[in-house]
Structures are given as structure tokens and as C-alpha cells.
Design a protein around this nucleic acid. Structure first.
Lengths: 238, 238
DNA sequence: ATAATAGATTAACCAAACATTAACACCTAT
DNA sequence: ATAGGTGTTAATGTTTGGTTAATCTATTAT
């Protein structure tokens, strides 16, 4: 692949500051799209793919956290950096919970931001190298479209999947017939690994099992203490 | 494998602060090793593998940056967080250049540190998992998949193995036809060698023997006072 | 030969992990 | 306001895994 510039979505309601920051980043060889509020930011996010999102926290109508959550529902991977004037602990924690990769208090030094951006993009691009852009999967007699989040069986009406159902099923399919470690799903999808998220995951496994009952050859098995395994029997007959 | 706690190397010359931070992290289910200077930190780093390093920047003899550079020479992947009293831009940049993943100014909020640690470990944890060891074995007419923990005989339905059964059988296979010392299994699998774990192991040997009865050429023999020996007869006929 | 030690096997028991359904909280859109 | 969708927490039941106990058998040392 050629060396294409990294694309950044910058959402900042302070138009002056936003323009200055955009120029600075563009001078440093990033492709920057500027949105002036959360709504516009989300629209632009949906229309394109970005390597990084920089979100101001305090914005009218839709704040940075809400936007981050919406972005996370669409894309669980893209790095997010929050910009904020306040440095209150609650806000920082809220940010990390919303799936932030980093946090920066205003006023900040632009060179520091640049370093952070480079560090984050670098580490993402290394573990994203096996990145799955693929979003259509066949499993037994099912077909999953993980971009539109629906699952079809034969010619039945498609089953709409929630974001979590979709992510979990996709991860199971990507490990078809192999172990999908519990911990992996929890850290990647739930972004936290504790007793409650683990119970929550069990609930979703039960939901998926219910859907998958339509094809008796498809089954989610548990490997006690390790994780789950999606198996497809009679594959020869496919 | 069981859910082992993440290991953190903490290098901090302020013994008081170091001990407090160590306790706090251990309360949050991390395995913490504390080193009181750069030299000791590097020694400990070489002796073990860690999921994260937290380095104080200002330390006598060997500062945090130098240590980070040494660590990066050995390991390009392990996440590093710097702790520093100063918030000077040059230092921050120097830190990122040395391969930092994050940066925290003292005094900092311990909950914030905890969030950062979790965020960082999560995003790293996927590519660290690539440790592919051997997990498929043939023994007589059996086939063992020790990753998915099952044992198949011919085309029979796979026999599900418990973690202990699986580990023990794997160890026996790795010593095929040779002595597998009792003490080895106890220290490696049971992590303790006493009367009760020894009885427990006998129970597991009995369980394995029951499974292995399917193939009359495979047998677990006892070597009195020494250990066990997995033998395969008529190997020529295989 | 016999006592002492080591091993074999089955069963009983408890704790942890998992499964499933229901209740609840939250947000969004009507 | 309210209905629908999504995700978490609670409540309850089931399964699995591991230890311990009880009872027997084999081996070794004297």
C-alpha cells in the first residue's frame, strides 16, 4: 500500500481554535476533516473512515462523550482523543469509559498533541495490521452482514442484531471452530473484564444461541474457564 | 489456562510512594514488582516478562528515559507509562520519543492511573496473545487437542477434558515412553507438592486410564516412588 | 511374612463457572 | 409522555472441576 496520509476527524465547536488546529495538523501531513458540532461530526464519521478522532468534550447539543459512544457503536477500533478545558477526575474517568485512547487538557502544547497522535496511530496501526475490513460472513446456513448488523437464514426475514450481538457474533465467526477466549471478547467488545461484564457476555451468548437454533449444525460451545467456540457440523454438505 | 493477573513492573526511587502505589495496584488485582532504581528495574525486567512498566522519570544513577530505552531494546512491545513531577514540554516529548505509551504528572489521581493502565493493557493484550505453542498431539490411535481440551479416538465423539486432565495428559505425552516424575507434574500443574495434591494426581491418573482404555496399546504405568510412564505398544503397526 | 508405604479406584462433596429468564435503567424518537 | 431498543444487573438453576475421604491392592523393606 502507498503511503497515504492519515485521516483525522476533528470535532470542535470553537471555530477559531478548530481552524488553527486543523491547519497545524495539516502542516504535519495529516488529512483533517473539521466538524463544528457533535451532530455534524457523527454525520462525517459515518460518511468516511478515519484513522483517528479528536473530540472536544464541551460542545452544544451533543457533547464529546455522547458522540464518542455513538462512534464506538459503529466502530470499536478507531482511536479517540478527548480535548477538554476541565481536568476534573470524573470527566477523565467518563472519557476513558467511553472508550478514549487519550485525554488532553486545554490549553495544551500542540507538539505534545502531535506526539500523542503519532504514538496512538502507530500502536493502532501495528495491531490493526490484520484489520478486518471484511463485514460479510457465511456461517452454516446463515449470512451475517456486520456492517448493516443483520443476520439472515435462508430466505427468511433478516434478524436485526444489536451492536453487542453483532460484535460478539463477528468475533466468534472470526475464530470459527477455534477458541474465542472470554477475555478477548471482554477487553475488545466490553472494554473491561470483570464479574459483571462477564455475566453480561453470558446473556449475549444466550441471545445468539437462540438465533442460531435455526440451523442445527451451528452451535456455540463453552470451554469451561477459557471461552467459547463456534462450531459448524456437516460442513461437507455445504 | 487460568486467568492470571497482569504483571506490572514499577520502578520508583521514592520508597514510600512506591510502596503505597504498589499496594494500591495489588488491591486492584495486578501483580506488582517494585524496583527502587533504574539498575534494579532493568535487572528485574530481564528476569521476567511484564504486561506493563511504570517508570519514574527522576531517579538517581539511571533515569526513567534511559531505562525506557534499554527496555525498548529488549522488547519493542511492552507498554510504558512515565511518572514525572515536572510537566515540562521537553520532558514529555523526550518520553514519547523513548517509546512511552502514556505520561502522568505527579501528583496524579490513582483512579485515573488505573483507567490508563486498563486502557493500555487492553489495547495491547490482543497481539501479545500470539504465543503459538504446540497443542496438537497424536498418541496411539488418539489425537489430543490441548488448546480446545479434547481427546479423539478414531472417529468417535471427542472426549472433553478438564484443565487438569488436559495438562496431565499433555505432560505424559511430552515424556512418551519415558519417566514423567511425579514431582514434576505436581510442581508444574498443581503448583504444590504435598500429600493431598499427590492423592489428587492419582485420581487424575485413574481418569486418564479410563479414557485411554479405548486403545489397548496405550497404557500409563507406574514407576513406584518415581512417577508415571506413558507407553505405546506396537508402534510399528501405526 | 508382615508391616509400612505407595498407588488405584470410586464416591461424596463444595465452590466456581456457566445458562437462562426476568427485571431494571437508560436513551432516543415519536 | 410513552414505546421500543439496548445493555446491565439480579435471581435462580445447572454443570463442571477439583479436592478429600474411604476402601482396596500392590510393592518394598525388614
Amino acid at each position: 500500500m502507498e503511503n497515504v496520509n492519515k485521516k483525522i476527524l476533528l470535532v470542535e465547536d470553537d471555530l477559531n481554535f478548530g481552524a488553527v488546529l486543523k491547519d497545524y495538523l495539516m502542516l504535519n501531513d495529516f488529512d483533517v476533516t473539521l466538524a463544528k458540532n457533535g451532530m455534524e461530526g457523527f454525520e462525517k464519521f459515518k460518511k468516511d473512515t478515519y484513522d483517528l478522532c479528536i473530540l472536544d468534550v464541551m460542545m452544544p447539543y451533543k457533547d464529546g462523550y455522547t458522540l464518542a459512544k455513538e462512534i464506538r457503536e459503529k466502530n470499536n477500533e478507531v482511536p479517540i482523543i478527548f480535548l477538554t478545558a476541565k481536568s476534573m477526575k470524573e470527566d477523565v474517568l467518563k472519557g476513558y469509559k467511553a472508550g478514549a485512547d487519550d485525554y488532553l487538557n486545554k490549553p495544551f502544547d500542540s507538539e505534545v498533541l502531535l506526539m500523542k497522535i503519532k504514538a496512538i496511530i502507530q500502536r493502532k496501526s501495528s495491531d490493526t495490521k490484520a484489520e478486518q475490513v471484511q463485514f460479510e460472513f457465511n456461517i452454516g446456513k446463515f449470512h451475517l452482514n456486520s456492517k448493516l448488523r443483520f443476520l439472515t437464514f435462508n430466505n427468511d426475514e433478516p434478524i436485526k442484531l444489536s451492536p453487542k450481538e453483532n460484535e460478539l457474533l463477528k468475533m466468534l465467526i472470526l475464530h470459527e471452530n477455534d477458541l474465542m477466549p472470554r477475555e478477548l471478547a471482554l477487553t475488545k467488545i466490553w472494554r473491561d473484564d470483570n464479574y459483571f461484564t462477564s455475566r453480561s457476555m453470558d446473556v449475549y451468548i444466550a441471545k445468539l444461541r437462540k438465533y442460531l437454533k435455526l440451523d442445527e449444525d451451528v452451535e456455540i460451545l463453552n470451554i469451561h474457564g477459557e471461552g467459547f467456540r463456534l462450531v459448524v457440523k456437516n460442513k461437507a454438505a455445504e
